[in-house]
Nucleic acid binder design. Structure first.
Lengths: 212, 212
DNA sequence: CTTGCTCTAGGGGTTTTCCCTCATTTTTAA
DNA sequence: TTAAAAATGAGGGAAAACCCCTAGAGCAAG
């Protein structure tokens, strides 16, 4: 019997998953969680064999939750179930400790296969995720992180202010630094993320789900 | 017996919905569709009483699909099931002909209630959607559309070029107009959408799912 | 046929962005 | 502890963005 915890903030989807997984005689759904924090808590309490988790959740996002689960409950296997196709998501989640990655538009049979694979200590990656990981493994390690990760903390502050539509003067004021310094940070951000202007930067942010 | 068609591009969610609805003895799921176009085709063919549809779908987005369904199969009731909380989505979908609007994080009981309500010719709106519509009905009709709708066709062209990160010079070249004209259009777009700069414009585009 | 809207184009201005360079101090890591 | 990286600040300049304004041509509706 495979015990499973399901974490997803969309109730209907979550209940649909419970319904799907419960149809299989080998699978027992222990509990559900609607946010990352309660997912970690319930996992530590109930010690499920497999945790099915979505990336985007309130309280504690999926990535942080996976990290904590992997640290505090390494014997539990984490299956990421998401609609995010971005390469970076796959990589980040795997590095955070996920044993499987499945897109929400895959078939429900695949979900059950994945849960069973993880319960047996195997990994399970969708066609897409597997190919991303295969491609990535050919690149040098320093290329793995998306450029946003290469920003310094100050640069990230500036980054977020730019994508809020703030001007350099606004940024200088809100960070209490000189306009010239803010300008320098701005330049470095654009340079590091390889975009030409603020508009492209916001596109970048949208692409990586960095817009609050 | 209530016949239902389910349209959602995420296979797992879709199958979860089928599983949930099939548990109810009064509901019969006739078919599923993974994109807007096939949803319309299958609806015209099978003539379901209720169509459960997601907004964001490939081929033909939910809004267009709802519009066509309402025109070509007015006797079928459309229930929009989505994770989009944006006010504008609710309004647009209702104006397109939806009889119900449900968020994906509502409970599955609510989904079944909604399907039954629509089958009886009633409407069903989630707490949130209902309040949005209540608030909107107090505003004058010309305020209903989001500002993007007020752009002229030329302004929309410019809009899309701006959110691609193009400079005014680029825009002038690509539309074969003078830089000054492009500048004027740019100004009008920013003014009509009430944003201060290109960065905010891209945010706006992201908010309304206008980023390609 | 006038009124209004759109598209076009320009004048002239201020502000902001973007791109270099250089330099000091602080923090971090080897 | 020394070297590297980060944060700070500034000068100067070219380009772009932003904000006024006017104005003609075309087109559709009243």
């Amino acid at each position: 019997m495979i015990s499973v915890l399901i974490a997803d903030d969309h109730t209907i989807l979550r209940q649909g998953l419970v319904s799907l997984l419960s149809n299989d005689p080998d699978i027992l759904v222990l509990a559900e969680a609607a946010d990352g924090l309660s997912a970690v808590q319930k996992a530590l309490e109930l010690k499920p064999m497999v945790i099915v988790i979505d990336i985007s959740m309130p309280e504690l996002n999926g990535m942080e939750a996976v990290k904590r689960l992997h640290e505090q409950l390494p014997e539990a296997k984490v299956l990421v179930l998401t609609m995010h196709e971005e390469q970076e998501y796959v990589i980040h989640m795997v590095r955070a400790g996920a044993s499987g990655y499945l897109l929400k538009d895959s078939a429900s049979d695949e979900l059950i296969d994945a849960v069973k694979a993880l319960a047996q200590g195997k990994t399970y990656f969708s066609q897409y995720a597997a190919s991303v990981l295969a491609t990535m493994s050919l690149k040098p390690a320093e290329m793995w992180d998306d450029p946003y990760r290469n920003l310094t903390s100050r640069e990230r502050e500036v980054f977020h202010l730019i994508i809020e539509g703030k001007t350099t003067k606004d940024i200088a004021r809100s960070l209490d630094i000189s306009v010239k310094t803010a300008e320098n940070h701005r330049g470095k951000v654009l340079d590091k993320l390889q975009v030409a202007n603020a508009a492209e930067l916001v596109r970048y942010a949208a692409k990586y789900n960095l817009l609050i």
